[in-house]
């Protein structure tokens, strides 16, 4: 009996809501099975981040053709919050700073929103703290970070680590990492990668969106896809990332390297 894909994107065409003449994704097909790690690599402007945002339900985009199924269900009618509660997590390329809301407050609200969505009782403060502490240890996040305001004054590395921590706290099953490696030094990259690897359990899947091959040294993908001008032009195993490291995106008509 065949397994249901965790994510199945079929012939996805997307354009900008505000500027319908601009088609950003032009027929994407992608299937991710539970437990798999896929990477989408592409040069600037290829549509990588758009794909991430469309998956998370951002309404700046219009899907003109094709479909996205998550666990066999069409995502079309679900808002970003429902997708999150169903298990999709987008780690932002640029996490938003929110002065005035502590990370703790924010995560308590998020965890309990998901529990309500699942028909469970809300967790009390004690249970939430225990949960946060366990995840902080797992993702190498200092617990003190939770007392600060959401992303406010966080360094680039802290922001990315806090994103991964949120995914662990929310226990999401699909993590979409939108250029989580950008702007990180090697040490920060390692910490983020270890956090991701600690969540790989044969069920949880990841979609790593990146310009650079470097991240894939630390989080080894099952499949690599090259996205150029809104289309996946080549798919392969992790060796494809090596090819890109060597030749950049030149073979795909874009003169950009894939190394930092």
């Amino acid at each position: 009996m065949s397994q249901t894909p965790l994510l199945k994107i079929s012939n996805l065409h997307v354009r900008l809501e505000d500027d319908p003449a601009v088609e950003i994704l032009r027929g994407i097909d992608l299937t991710i099975m539970p437990g798999e790690v896929h990477s989408i690599m592409g040069p600037n402007g290829s549509g990588k981040s758009t794909l991430a945002q469309v998956l998370a339900g951002k309404d700046d985009y219009e899907i003109t053709e094709g479909s996205i199924e998550f666990n066999g269900e069409d995502l079309d009618d679900l808002g970003p919050d429902e997708r999150a509660n169903a298990g999709i997590f987008l780690a932002f390329q640029y996490p938003v700073e929110i002065p005035g809301v502590s990370a703790m407050q924010f995560l308590k609200a998020a965890v309990n929103a998901k529990r309500v969505f699942e028909g469970k009782d809300e967790l009390n403060a004690g249970a939430l703290l225990k949960h946060f502490r366990a995840k902080a240890d797992q993702i190498y996040v200092p617990f003190e970070m939770l007392k600060r305001n959401v992303n406010e004054g966080f360094s680039g590395g802290e922001k990315k680590r806090f994103e991964i921590f949120q995914m662990a706290v929310l226990d999401s099953v699909l993590g979409i990492l939108d250029e989580s490696d950008s702007g990180l030094d090697i040490d920060a990259l390692k910490i983020v990668s270890e956090g991701v690897n600690s969540m790989r359990d044969g069920h949880r899947a990841f979609l790593l969106i990146t310009h650079y091959q470097r991240l894939l040294d630390y989080i080894v993908p099952d499949q690599v896809h090259v996205l150029v001008k809104g289309r996946i032009v080549k798919s392969g195993g992790k060796e494809l990332a090596m090819e890109l490291e060597e030749n950049g995106y030149a073979p795909f008509g874009v003169n950009e390297p894939a190394t930092v």
Binding site: G57, P80, F106, A113
Partner: peptide, 24 residues
């Protein structure tokens, strides 16, 4: 969008952000 992508409803997200604006 950031708050909604973490599972908070639009109403709660907005209310939290308005509160945050006033919090300082």
């Amino acid at each position: 969008f950031y708050f909604r992508s973490r599972g908070l409803s639009e109403e709660v997200a907005r209310a939290m952000l308005i509160y945050a604006f006033a919090a300082e």
